[in-house]
């Protein structure tokens, strides 16, 4: 059983700059921020270190932070430029019974994060979902396709309607001849 501070200290000692910060002020969850391109190394360490033994990934959530600047594009739609997309990892150790939340942030215009599929198999579909709904690219993922939306969604929609959980998403008018809005 280790607290978030102890885990943060262990990681900071081992990985230095790749571990960015520990967010202690917000209620309920304490979040460790990590470099998006080192997340696979840190996760492997978290799983294999006998003191930590994080053997299961409970949840992986892609989030659109919507912290960029709102601008109007050529057609008058409000879009967000700049800012970040984030992924939150909720880890849990079945044997040691402690929990931790990790966060990585990546720029919105080129979102890239290392995949954790090799470390926890359960990351596979969660990452596909984040790719599908938010549009985050996971590097070294074996099978990065859409999972919930139709595979041919891109063919029928504009750039702004690609990833529905982005905050500036706009419904397409038609998909395969079917009207989408009410």
């Amino acid at each position: 059983m280790k607290s978030a501070e102890e885990i943060f200290d262990i990681l900071k000692k081992k990985f230095g700059d790749a571990v960015l910060s520990l967010d202690k002020d917000t209620p309920v969850e304490q979040i460790i921020s990590i470099d998006p391109l080192k997340i696979n190394l840190i996760s492997k360490y978290l799983r294999e270190n006998p003191e930590l033994q994080f053997d299961s990934l409970m949840c992986l959530s892609g989030v659109d932070d919507a912290n960029g600047i709102k601008v109007k594009d050529a057609e008058g739609n409000e879009i967000i430029e700049g800012g970040t997309l984030s992924v939150y990892y909720n880890l849990h150790s079945v044997s040691l019974k402690h929990k931790i939340t990790l966060k990585v942030s990546t720029p919105r215009n080129d979102p890239q994060i290392e995949s954790l599929e090799k470390i926890w198999k359960s990351a596979n579909w969660h990452e596909r979902e984040a790719f599908d709904l938010i549009g985050i690219k996971f590097l070294n993922h074996p099978d990065l396709r859409r999972i919930l939306m139709p595979y041919d969604w891109d063919e029928f929609t504009e750039e702004i309607s690609r990833h529905p959980l982005r905050k500036d998403y706009k419904n397409p008018e038609f998909y395969q001849g079917m009207k989408v809005p009410y």
Binding site: T26, P27, V28, N90, T101
Partner: peptide, 9 residues
């Protein structure tokens, strides 16, 4: 609710 995150299972 206040600003923050929660994971409840």
């Amino acid at each position: 609710p206040p600003k923050g995150t929660v994971y409840k299972r």
